[in-house]
Each structure stands twice: as C-alpha cells, then as structure tokens.
Amino acid sequence: MTADITIADLDHTYPGATTPTLRRVTLEVPAGTRTAVLGPSGSGKSTLLSIVAGLSTPTGGDVRLAGHSVLRQPPHRRDLGVVFQRPLLFPHLTVAENVAFGLRMRGTDRTAIRRRVAELLDAVSLPGYGERRSGELSGGQQQRVALARALAARPGVLLLDEPFSALDPQLRGDMRALLTELHRREGSTTLFVTHDRDEATDVADTVTVLLDGRVAQHAPPADLFRRPATLTVARFLGGADNAIPGTASAGHFDCPLGRLRLDTDHRGPGLLLIRPAAIVVGDHPGDNVVPATITAVTDRGTHLDIQATSGGVTLQLTTGPAAPLRPGDDTPLWLPPAHLSVVTP
C-alpha cells in the first residue's frame, strides 16, 4: 500500500553541535508521488532521510507515514525500503537471497518469494542473475539489485539517499529512467535525496530545495528554474547570472532595461532574474523586447556564450552554436515574461 509522507516542523541538532542541522522542515509527499530533496552537501538532506527511515531520532517535530506518527517506531516497523549511496548488498547471500530478504523476514511463503524475486530481477533487467554473488556484479548492477531488494516487500514508502552518485554519468541516466519506470510499476511514494539538480528534475515530480537545514523552495522542477523563490535558490540552481536591480509593481518591473511586463507577487525594490538560455535573440511581437549590443562571443562548441549590453546593463545569454552573431552587432533581445522572476536582493 502506497502511503503519504508528512514531515512536520522537523528540528534536528546533533549532540554537541552548536548549529541545528534541520530547522522547522515541513514537507508533504502525497501517496504515489515522487519528491526530490535537493541540496548541497551539509544542507541536512541525508539527516532528513535517515530520520524518516528511523535511523536517527529528531530533536523536534513529527514524521507521519500514512497519517500515523512513526517517530516511536523502529525502522523495521515503518514499512519502507531504503536505497543508500552504496549498494550494501549482503555479501553472504546470493542476488536472489538479497532481493528476497525483506519477504523472508516477514515469513512470506517460498513460492510467492520466488515469483516476486523473478519479477523484480526482470524489472531491473537482471534476469538469470539470481544465483550470483554481489562481488560478481558491476557497481550499476549491484545498485539495481539494491533497488529490487528495497521494493520486494512492496513498501508504502521508498527512500533513496543519493543512490546513483557513485555511478558513472552514462549509467546514471539509465538508472534514472529505470527508477521512473519502477515507480510507475510499483507506485511506492518516493522520497529522493540528491545534490544533483538534473537528477532531481529528471526523477521527481516535485523538488524541495533544502539550504542550511531549511526548506528554501518546494515546487515542480520547471517552476524551480523559472521562478526561484530567493536569490540563494537561484544561485544554487545556477540561475543568478543575470540579476538586474529595479523596482517591482503589479505586473511590471522598472529597471535600466526599461519597463518590463511580468507576473510577480513581489513589490518594491528587487532583483530581476532571467536564465541565459531563456533570452531570445531577435525581434518578437509584444512587450519585453530591448535593444542590445553584442560585446563578446565565446564558442563553446555545443553553444555560444554571449555577452550583451542594454541600457548600461550587461546580460549573459546563450544561443545555438550556429547563431550568426559577432561582437559589435546590434540586435533586439526578447525577455519572455514567463521566464522572468523577481527576488529580494
């Protein structure tokens, strides 16, 4: 049975530490969905996961699985599956015995176990590997077995702690696709911790950005990039290259570029953010077209990094590698309203 995860006002300070690791973290993961907790190392995201798993006890707040507080329950009573950064397969057991572990501990009958193990080994594309030992598998294969093992008993909640960060980049892409596919089949509510923003946006339907132990933003992946909640979030997501000071009012932002139309709740002085890749070179019918002069072009092979000035403001933008732009060219730039956001300076 898939279950929703409620994290309410969670506080945690490690014994002897002066600053808290988690501060009033509140997070709701509806049943059957996938949420990624994205944060740099030291942001408290692994601590958060280990508290949900029951491997650490928080200093304050509550964790509810399927509506019931589980803080007083040890990990083995929480109906969950955890995949850690390292596969941690039991070395004294075969692949099949590893996958079967959770079911065996629950006393499931042998025929049912055998059927479920075969089904999962198929699902992680390792059919026929059942009799092997973990030492005979590659890192990616071991992590796939770990995934199968975590899902075998059909836990309500699947927790993943940077599960793919030890794998090489090519493999990581495959694993993300596999995880999405497995989630579609199994439906366990998934809470996924990562420092890799591509991983977070690929795998999750909602991303929670955790900075300094606080929830900085909780939004679908696209919104996160289009509308970062704060300058820190924008910086962490690599979207603070263009930060233009000005004043926001209802539907408008006045700055050296002129009066730009946008949709924001912000009022008064603020910073306008737009990602380099969101700026469109060329004219466009409607608002938000500003005249600009190209000052520098750097050919990166896959794209061009371009610097332009407009109204005394320097803008960073990127275009496709074939754009016919030279330093000194005058060109209009379109700043699409949907990609503009305003944050507190």
Partner: peptide, 28 residues
C-alpha cells in the same frame, strides 16, 4: 567494519533485531 551498515539495511527491510543478529550480524 561494514557490519553496522548492513545491519541498518536489514532493519529498513523489516528485519527485527533478533533476525538481524541471526541473518546478518553473525554470518558476517
């Protein structure tokens, strides 16, 4: 060594403390 990590994994997989001892700790 890595025994403690394996024990944690076993607990998250639903093994009671006695089962962890018998199926993970002692074999390792």
């Amino acid at each position: 060594g890595p025994v403690a990590e394996h024990e944690r994994v076993a607990a998250t997989l639903g093994a009671r403390p006695r089962q962890v001892l018998r199926h993970v700790t002692l074999p390792l």
